[in-house]
């Protein structure tokens, strides 16, 4: 199957070689779903330009409390200390604005909703928003400032940019 690998909005070539399900556009606020070429809007908290970021799906339509679902993978994380559970538990709801995602995406919105259901969290019926949150590198680890969640950077997939390449 061949799909045009340029952003449908700004024609920037996309990084499709890793064959992840979505390719975020580096220039405009969208990510292209590779199986059908559909462009999804992407968001960030306003005034947040940190270079190191993690991608999430935010299910917060229908006036529900926000439900965060990681769009990245974090290996060997035990029990309820996962970052999306922490953000959901805090009811974190930043003001989001359209912005390039600047983070890798490991799963589609449908897959994220299915995993949320398996975790007994109801994602609702409305499609989520794809957004990214800033993280800070501290040595070999990265820290999410809102929740204080901390993990080895090497356990994240898609891999974060190397130090100095940010």
């Amino acid at each position: 199957m061949l799909r045009l690998a340029r952003c449908p909005r700004c024609a920037t070539p996309l990084d499709v070689a890793a064959a992840r399900p979505l390719a975020p556009c580096p220039r405009c606020p969208c990510a292209v779903r590779l199986d059908d070429g559909l462009a999804l809007d992407t968001f960030r908290p306003r005034d947040d330009d940190a270079p190191l970021r993690l991608a999430f799906y935010l299910f917060d339509r229908d006036a529900r409390p926000p439900l965060w679902a990681a769009a990245f993978r974090c290996f060997q994380q035990a029990s309820r200390v996962d970052l999306d559970a922490l953000l959901t538990g805090r009811g974190h709801r930043p003001l989001l604005g359209p912005a390039p995602l600047a983070a890798g995406v490991a799963r589609t919105a449908e897959e994220a909703a299915r995993l949320a259901l398996l975790r007994q969290r109801d994602p609702g019926r409305e499609p989520p928003r794809l957004c990214s949150l800033a993280v800070v590198r501290e040595g070999d680890e990265i820290v999410e400032p809102v929740s204080g969640w901390r993990v080895l950077a090497s356990l994240i997939a898609p891999a974060l940019p190397a130090e100095g390449a940010e």
């Binding site: 199957m1 061949l2 799909r3 045009l4 690998a5 340029r6 070539p13 996309l14 990084d15 499709v16 070689a17 890793a18 064959a19 390719a23 590779l34 199986d35």
Partner: peptide, 23 residues
């Protein structure tokens, strides 16, 4: 193979996504 491929004639870039073939 999965990945990006450029058309030599029109210059368009495509994502090649063969089913069942790992990256």
């Amino acid at each position: 193979l999965p990945g990006a491929v450029d058309c030599g004639a029109c210059g368009n870039r495509y994502a090649s996504l063969p089913a069942g073939v790992p990256t």
